[in-house]
């Protein structure tokens, strides 16, 4: 009995020792030489592994940063933002330019009211599946399909579907501008735009390229490409192409002249302080929930 116990212990001990040596040798022999700075950079990253930077994850991004150092122009972690990039730069001992913070903007105002449903979709609830099948359940073949692929793509819980309008709403506090929703949207409705001064933004909330009459028939709030906004813009920020106006956010000075001029209310101005109650503000209502300051939960 005792001998059995002793033998068992002895054999296991020897086995353990031998295996430890083998493991050590293998670990030494096949060791991958890595820049220790990669670990350090990874430590200061948010660790969301969202891929918003264009790399496979935070580790890959850290490696990318170290490789492209000292020039970090192409590296930007949307989650950590400028603050995070400053930390990365500090670790690597280089300088990095401050980038304008961005936010995802939904450019469709085809609410159930503005854009009546012409048919009913009965397949798998996915915008990609729906887009591959047909133009959607409204007369507008450009607008939001409403199945929420963007909501599923967002890792930060920053997009939700508004049950009343059937459109996605971006929570600006939570949005990191990683761009996952932009990629997920088969209709290319979501765009990353500069957050703007005090979060104030003016944009065309429509991507319909149909001719004015057709677009208007499908949706009351469609951009009909009339070009009035482009004429009134003092800063040449608005271009009209394929019956659709687009406001260049780098040129826009937030004068809001176009907002008043737009006959269909397709141009939205958000986060502007309310000075006097304007009747035109009504079309912008769907964007309003996002505009309200959201209290941070932490």
């Amino acid at each position: 009995m005792t001998t059995t116990i002793i033998w068992t212990i002895a054999i296991l001990t020897v086995l353990g020792a031998v295996l430890a040596v083998v493991l050590y040798i293998v670990a030494e022999k096949f060791k991958v030489e890595e820049d220790p700075r990669i670990d350090e950079v990874e430590k200061v990253l948010p660790g969301a592994n969202c891929g918003g930077c264009g790399q496979a994850g935070c580790r890959a991004f850290a490696q990318f940063c170290v490789e492209s150092s000292p020039n970090l122009d192409k590296c930007f972690c949307p989650v950590g933002g400028n603050e995070g990039m400053q930390k990365v730069a500090a670790v690597l001992g280089v300088e990095v330019a401050v980038k304008e913070p961005q936010v995802a903007v939904v450019r469709c105002n085809g609410t159930c009211e503005n854009r009546p449903r012409t048919n009913e979709y009965g397949g798998y609830q996915s915008c990609r599946v729906k887009a591959a099948l047909y133009s959607g359940d409204t007369g507008c073949s450009f607008g939001c399909l409403g199945c929420g692929d963007c909501v599923a793509a967002c890792q930060f819980g920053a997009i939700s579907m508004d049950p009343v309008t059937g459109l996605p709403v971006v929570d600006e506090e939570k949005c990191t501008a990683c761009g996952a929703c932009v990629k997920a949207c088969p209709k290319a409705i979501i765009e990353l735009r500069n957050k703007g001064r005090r979060n104030m933004r003016v944009f065309v909330s429509c991507v319909n390229k149909d001719k004015g009459a057709v677009a208007r028939k499908a949706c009351k709030a469609a951009c009909i490409g009339c070009g009035k906004c482009a004429k009134v813009c003092p800063f040449d920020a608005i271009t009209v192409e394929n019956n659709l106006a687009y406001i260049d956010f780098t040129k826009c000075k937030l004068c809001k002249k176009c907002v008043a001029e737009c006959p269909t209310g397709a141009i939205h101005a958000v986060n502007f302080p309310v000075i006097k109650p304007k009747p035109e503000a009504a079309p912008a209502a769907p964007a309003a929930p996002a505009a309200q300051p959201v209290k941070k939960e932490e």
């Binding site: 012409t118 009913e120 047909y134």
Partner: peptide
């Protein structure tokens, strides 16, 4: 009322 549309 409205046509139902879904993939085959």
């Amino acid at each position: 009322e409205k046509l139902l549309v879904s993939p085959s």
